[in-house]
């Protein structure tokens, strides 16, 4: 271990930072898209609309039964086919992550909404609010506040999962590091560095999540 080459990391920092930007961009975009679609799915399931609720439940269970890598392959193959022209790896991977994560976010949000006491919704309906007003002004704000730690935990999982874009060669943080590792024969240095960076970010994130969890009223 005495010949651990720190210079290789230092000299390639700008390139690695580019990769990290892709990783973060993908993470943030997937969280945003996942939460939006996930909320819609959760609300449809809870509203008990005959066919639609069943479709939403089927969507969630279907995606949760598939490996993420398979979903990435699917969309990498499908998106260009549907659009009829080649698109970059980033676009198809983003679609894959949004569709996949929506299923997981939907379950988190559904649990969050269910945790709000039903008296709250009943009171809102009693003073004449519509279903969507009840959701927007009464239930969802409270539910999201209670869900912050779980959403943060899911964000950390998603951040880790973005490393799977490796299978289609999108230049994220891991792939950038791997390119340098193979080019300069510095596998130990690069993979250890990648692990340390991921660990630092995720560990800090999970500490914050559990701190918020403790502060929340039960």
């Amino acid at each position: 271990m005495g010949d651990f080459d720190f210079a290789i990391i230092y000299n390639n920092l700008p390139f690695l930072l580019e990769g990290m930007k892709t990783t973060l961009l993908l993470t943030v975009a997937a969280i945003f898209g996942g939460i939006v679609i996930g909320t819609v799915l959760a609300m449809i399931r809870l509203a008990n609309i005959p066919v639609l609720s069943w479709v939403a439940a089927a969507y969630v269970n279907f995606f949760r039964s598939l490996p993420l890598i398979l979903v990435i392959f699917w969309l990498y193959f499908l998106v260009p086919l549907i659009l009829g022209r080649p698109v970059g790896a980033f676009a198809s991977v983003l679609v894959a992550f949004v569709l996949f994560e929506a299923a997981y976010y939907s379950e988190i949000i559904r649990a969050g909404i269910s945790s709000i006491r039903s008296g709250q919704a009943a009171a809102a309906r009693a003073i004449g609010m519509t279903y969507s007003q009840t959701m927007r002004f009464i239930v969802l704000p409270q539910a999201f506040k209670a869900m912050i730690p779980v959403l943060l935990t899911q964000a950390i999982i998603l951040f880790q999962d973005t490393s799977l874009v490796y299978v289609v060669g999108l230049k994220d943080f891991l792939v950038s590091a791997e390119l340098i590792a193979n080019r300069d024969q510095k596998l130990i240095e690069m993979f250890v560095f990648v692990a340390v960076v991921y660990f630092t970010i995720c560990f800090a994130g999970s500490m914050i999540a559990s701190r918020i969890q403790r502060k929340l009223p039960v």
């Binding site: 271990m1 950390i156 880790q160 999962d161 490393s163 799977l164 490796y166 891991l174 791997e178 590792a181 596998l187 130990i188 993979f191 250890v192 990648v194 692990a195 991921y198 660990f199 995720c202 560990f203 999970s206």
Partner: peptide, 22 residues
Amino acid sequence: ELFRNVPLLVQLFLWYFVFPEL
């Protein structure tokens, strides 16, 4: 904490490429 804060794929690469060298 150690095992759940590093992506599984990175762990796999560590075992496959780095571990034998150590």
